Lab assay of single mutants.
Amino acid sequence: QTVHVKGVQYHFPNPEEAVKFALKVAKDLGGRVEFHGDEIHVE
């Protein structure tokens, strides 16, 4: 599972961890989380 944050990719073997990370980052940055297939983008 890959999380993209402002052009940087973070790889997580566990999808659940990836989602938790993405939600935390989005909250910290005041952004939103978008799901694109296997990828999660924080915009």
Rank of each mutant, 00 (worst) to 15 (best):
V5C: 04
P13T: 14
I40V: 05
F21W: 13
H41E: 03
N14T: 14
V42R: 00
H36G: 04
R32I: 11
K24M: 12
E34A: 12
Y10G: 00
V33M: 07
L23T: 11
L29Q: 07
K6T: 07
H36F: 11
A22R: 00
E39M: 09
V19F: 14
F12T: 00
G30P: 06
Y10S: 02
P15M: 15
R32V: 11
L23K: 10
E16M: 11
V8G: 05
K6L: 14
E34H: 13
A26H: 02
K24C: 07
N14L: 06
N14H: 06
K27P: 01
H4T: 13
Q1K: 14
E17C: 05
E16R: 08
V3D: 00
T2E: 04
V3I: 03
F12R: 00
K6D: 15
Q9R: 12
V5K: 01
V3M: 00
G7Q: 05
V25P: 00
E16W: 12
F35Y: 12
V33A: 04
K27N: 12
H4Q: 07
K27I: 10
G30K: 08
H41C: 07
G31R: 03
V5H: 06
H11L: 09
E43G: 09
H4V: 15
K20E: 12
N14G: 07
P15C: 09
V19A: 07
A26S: 06
F12P: 01
G30V: 05
E43K: 15
E43I: 15
V8H: 10
A22F: 02
F21M: 03
V8N: 08
V33D: 00
E39C: 06
K27L: 12
K6H: 14
H36P: 03
N14S: 14
Q1M: 15
V5Q: 01
V19G: 04
Q9L: 14
K20M: 10
A26I: 05
R32E: 05
K6P: 02
G37I: 05
E16Q: 12
L29H: 07
E34N: 10
V5A: 04
G37Q: 07
K20I: 10
K27A: 14
E34C: 10
P15A: 14
V25M: 14
V3C: 03
D38A: 12
H4Y: 15
V25Y: 06
I40S: 01
G31V: 06
V5I: 13
H4R: 10
G7E: 05
G37P: 04
E16S: 10
V33K: 00
L23C: 11
V42H: 01
V5N: 03
V25G: 01
Y10D: 00
D38F: 10
V42K: 01
Q1H: 14
P13G: 10
F35V: 08
E39R: 08
G37W: 05
A26N: 02
Q9I: 15
I40M: 05
D28T: 11
N14P: 00
N14F: 06
F35G: 02
G37L: 07
G37A: 07
K24T: 11
K6M: 15
V33I: 13
K20D: 09
K24E: 13
E39S: 11
K6I: 07
D38M: 11
H41L: 08
Y10H: 07
V5F: 10
Y10R: 03
V19M: 15
E34K: 12
R32D: 04
A26C: 05
G31E: 03
D28E: 15
P13L: 13
V25D: 01
K24L: 10
L29T: 14
P13D: 14
Y10Q: 02
L23R: 08
A22P: 01
E16K: 09
A22Y: 02
Q9M: 14
H4C: 07
A18G: 04
K27T: 10
V42N: 01
V19H: 11
G30Q: 08
K20A: 13
V33Q: 01
T2P: 03
V19R: 11
K24F: 06
V3K: 00
E39L: 07
Y10I: 06
N14A: 05
Q9C: 06
L23Q: 12
L23N: 13
A26P: 00
F35R: 06
R32T: 11
Q9D: 07
Q1A: 15
N14Q: 05
D28S: 11
L29Y: 10
V33L: 12
E43Y: 15
V5G: 01
L23V: 11
H11C: 07
P13E: 14
Q9A: 14
G7S: 05
H36W: 12
Q1S: 14
K6S: 14
G31S: 05
E34G: 06
I40Q: 01
